[in-house]
Amino acid sequence: MKKRTSFSIFLSVVSALFLREVQTRFGTKKLGYLWAVIDPMVKVIVFSLMYLAVGTKMQGIDFPVFLATSFLTYNFFSAVMNNSMPAFDANRALFSYKQVKPIDTIFSRFFIEFLVMSATVIIFICFGLYFDLNLAVKDFNLVILSIIWFGIFGLSLGILFAIINTFYETFGKIINFTSMPLFLLSGLLYTVDSLPPIARDIILYNPIVHFIEMIHGNYFSVLNTDYVDYEYMIFWTIIPLFLGLLFYARAEKKIIAS
């Protein structure tokens, strides 16, 4: 058999893992993917109705559209980050093949979640058009870039968390704990400038807020990206990625052999 480069082996393995995950998720539990659409849909409806009842209005924006941009992208990020932790265990049998390395499973989950999000976006666009909502995008390229960057941020946390979780099981539970507070504190339901100054300063410590603001600011013409701190986002992307890869390089053999 001819010798292949590391990279081509990596591509073969990630695509094999991707296809297998598509088969198992689509195949056995057909509702699996439907949930990816239903979850954000329900949230959009519920929160839109709540805000309607309270009387909050966002000038110049259809609130459901605002919520959809929040939930779809946040779910993508959150899925990448959270699904990376069980990735090693879920694929353990496949480590019998030396081409399959643990980190390949995290990358393949990233692409799966990206696929899921893309499909869900298309469905939401259809709904949006049907209900005559204002779907206008201010800067499409920057929106796409922001989403991809958001995903990479999730990936870098995912790698780091997956390794920590392998050696300290309670870590995963701690992260699960934070999911509800994070949901409320990530700027999904409101814009940063609508907050009182003290709250604003505190919430800007959450890197997720910057990503969400960046997406909102580039999507909606009435919003802007004034509060987005690109430097902060870069640190939050690169440092976990660096740490994650550093730990991974040392831990890979232990993860395979355990």
């Binding site: 058999m1 292949r4 082996i9 073969s12 094999a16 297998r20 056995t28 049998a93 496949l94 081409q99």
Partner: peptide
């Protein structure tokens, strides 16, 4: 290493496992 467990993923079918191994070998 071919052993009694075969190195297969339990939730995938035989066919899917064969495809998987073929794919990782390019």
């Amino acid at each position: 290493p071919m052993g009694l467990s075969g190195g297969f993923q339990g939730s995938m079918t035989g066919r899917q496992n064969v495809k998987f191994v073929c794919r990782i070998y390019g």
